[in-house]
Design a protein around this nucleic acid. Sequence first.
DNA 1: CGCCAGGGCCATA
DNA 2: TATGGCCATGGC
Length: 219
Amino acid sequence: MNIYDLLLSRYGDPHWWPGDTPYEIIVGAVLTQNTAWSNVKKALANFGGRLSPEYVAGLDVETLAEIIRPSGFFNQKARYLQEITRWFGRYGYDAHVARGMPLDRIRTELLALRGVGRETADDILLYAFQFSTFVVDAYTKRLTERLRIPAGNDYESVKTFFEERLPCDEKLFNRYHALIVLNAKEHCRKKPICSGCPLEGVCIGAIRASNGGDAVKSL
DNA sequence: CGCCAGGGCCATA
DNA sequence: TATGGCCATGGC
C-alpha cells in the first residue's frame, strides 16, 4: 500500500479546505500562516458573516487588524489581506476568471504580493481556484523526513518530487495535502511516528521492497 | 510557565 | 543561497 492510500483508508475523503467561498479560503490561507487554525476560526467569526472582498476593501487597515486580531501577527496580516484583495479585484473578485488564466501566471502574480509566499500561493491556487498544484508545508516536510523519502529540503524540490510522481490530478493533490495535515494533527507532534499512526512502521525502503522497488507507487 | 502553530519579510553575509 | 530576528494570539 502506498502512503496516500494508507492515509485515505484511515481518514477518508477530507473534503478540504475549511471555508465556504474562494475568498474565504484566500483569507484563511493568509491568516493561518504559522498560526493554529483555532485562532483563525476566531478571526473569521469576527467578520460576523460579512466576509467578502467588497467588505474588506472598504475597511481601513486598523479596523481590519482589530477584526483579525485573534489570528496573531494581525498588523502585517491586515496589510497582506488588503494587498491580496486588491489583486483579486483585478479578476472581478471572481475565482472562475482567475481559474481561466494560466497557472504559472497566477502563481507568479501571487508570489509578487507581500504576504504571499510559496505555500500560501499554492494553498490559494489549489483550494480556492482548483489549479492542479501540490502544496508543501511544514507537515509535508516533516513527513518526508521521517519516512526518509529523498524529496529534498527546499520548498520547490519537495513540490516537484510529488508532482513528478503523481498523476496531475487536482482532486488527488487536494486530498493528499489535506490527509497529511489531518495525520499530523492527530499524531506525531514529537519526533518519531507514534503508535497508532497509519504511517507507523512505514519507510520508503519498506514500501519499495513491497511493491517491486517502484518509488512512484510509494507515494 | 514555556512551547508552538498548516509562514513570510527583511537585513545581513 | 542561507541563516536569524521579527511579527502575536491562544491552546495546552
